[in-house]
Amino acid sequence: MSAKLSKPTFKPYTGEKARITRAYDYLILVLALFLFIGSFHLHFALTVGDWDFWVDWKDRQWWPLVTPLIGITFPAAVQAVLWSNFRLPLGATLCVACLSIGTWIARVFAYHYWNYFPINMVMPSTLLPSALVLDGILMLSNSLTVTAIFGGSAFALLFYPANWPIFGMFHLPVEAGNSQLTLADMFGFQYIRTGMPEYLRIIERGTLRTYGQIATPLSAFCSALLCTLMYTLWWHIGKWFATTRYLKRI
């Protein structure tokens, strides 16, 4: 069996050349860290940030639909470069880890210490389990199609269960002002924000509960379908941006 394996055609660098390439790797690591914290975080915050900022936005219908859908974009684009060219199966995890670092720093120092929002109210969600599975499926399958279908679906479906242990407690019911509401809603009413009015907050609608109390699985499976398409689209966007062309003029 092993005789069928092709022999590597390149000779690994040794000595100073190896040190040069290793130093270059470290420089790229630092570059990538800040690049993806800055860029992925801005992209994420300005598209689905409100669901991530506030505990009372984390509903059962929109949050599990839109967050994975936007969260899979940069991971797909970075995988397209790192896996295709360098066989590094960490594009998704890199992006999502960078996003987590950026959001946590901002929530602590920008929300909690500057404007006194309780950290429980602004705690970020996590996409790490989703990203690890996405990278794992790409590594094992080496296939865009398989990763888009199974990885994209898993990315969306894992989101809600991965976050349930963090945010489930805020969905507990409480009674206040003769009304029943969630603990998360109590946070919202106690800490008045300009983004709070109900004509701004995209809240859960009752219609999806026509089928009983399964709003979240319906949203998650809808997100899974959309993520398979979004993954493929962003894989190609990543490929397009990673052009090596030189132009005569701009």
């Binding site: 800055g38 860029s39 975080h41 940030g49 900022f53 950026g102 901002a106 920008a110």
Partner: peptide, 17 residues
């Protein structure tokens, strides 16, 4: 880009609340 796109961008949301 990190400071502009990540930290101070999200802080914009926090302050304008």
């Amino acid at each position: 880009v990190y400071w502009a796109g990540s930290y101070f961008a999200e802080q914009d949301n926090s302050w304008h609340q």
